[in-house]
Design a binder for these strands. Structure first.
Lengths: 142, 142
DNA sequence: AGTCAAGTTTACGTTGACGTAAGCGAGACG
DNA sequence: CGTCTCGCTTACGTCAACGTAAACTTGACT
């Protein structure tokens, strides 16, 4: 009659695969697939996967990347930018270069998006004009 | 020794498949594929396809849509919004509704994109701090 | 002990978006 | 006239990103 306990103490740090699926609206298959592609690195308790805060942050970025049309491989490389071990100076400099390119790319995308938004609004304005026209003709007829 | 003439008068209105490919950096296969999926409607002169100004406008939107991760089918539906025949009032109203939803979607994407840009900048700031740290330690050693 | 839900691995299937190859037709050039 | 170069159609191939099915464990509850 008790709530099913996860065995562990209700751990705020890690989540089961099901909790992840519910939280991010993905299937278990997807999470395992991302793990196989080295996009996520859940720890293993026995057989079970446990997804950490880090995995959740990464998944959020993954899903966002997908919405913007990046491939999983591109996303994997982006995620690397977010992982700073104790690197060498040259490595860090390289990281900064790559990040700068990515940033430029994002900014360009935003410009494109702004353009798209503008065009969509313009188009809607046209449709509204047509509707007004129809309405005025109906008025005229009366 | 003369420039190869297209047979026709150098028509600014229509473009051949090759001109399109060069202009938009796509392959012929892609253009034919888009036509088969009813995203483009080049006119036929004999067998040859001739792409109109309208096709070029559509292709621009198609490629932009792809960069934002829309599927070709989604893009096809978006393109319909840009085509205003002499419709009925109810149809136009419906068009406006759909366009409004799409617009909201675009705006949400821009917000996400802004967030991504902010995070990327922040991350770059961290990397710069690390580099500064390394530099100051080198200084200290001297 | 039985069984039932959840999770795991392995492997094959599917869908979207083209690539690639084969074979044909028509205009341009030597 | 022969051959090249484009373009066309038809059809099979491919790659990414999962879906789906089968067979097995494991922990939880009755």
């Amino acid at each position: 009659m008790f709530m099913k306990m996860t065995g562990d103490l209700m751990d705020a740090e890690t989540m089961t695969i099901r909790e992840m699926c519910d939280a991010f609206d993905v299937t278990p298959r997807t999470l395992r697939f991302y793990e196989s592609k080295e996009l996520l690195f859940p720890i293993r308790e026995g057989q079970k996967r446990l997804f950490t805060k880090r995995d959740r942050a990464r998944l959020k970025l993954i899903l966002r990347g997908k919405r913007f049309g990046f491939s999983l491989e591109e996303i994997r490389q982006l995620l690397e930018l977010y992982y700073l071990g104790d690197q060498q100076e040259t490595q860090l400099t390289r990281t900064l270069e790559v990040a700068s390119e990515r940033l430029d790319d994002l900014v360009r995308r935003r410009e494109e998006l702004d353009e798209a938004i503008g065009e969509m609004k313009q188009q809607m304005g046209l449709v509204e004009d047509m509707l007004d026209d129809i309405a005025s003709k109906r008025q005229q007829r009366a």
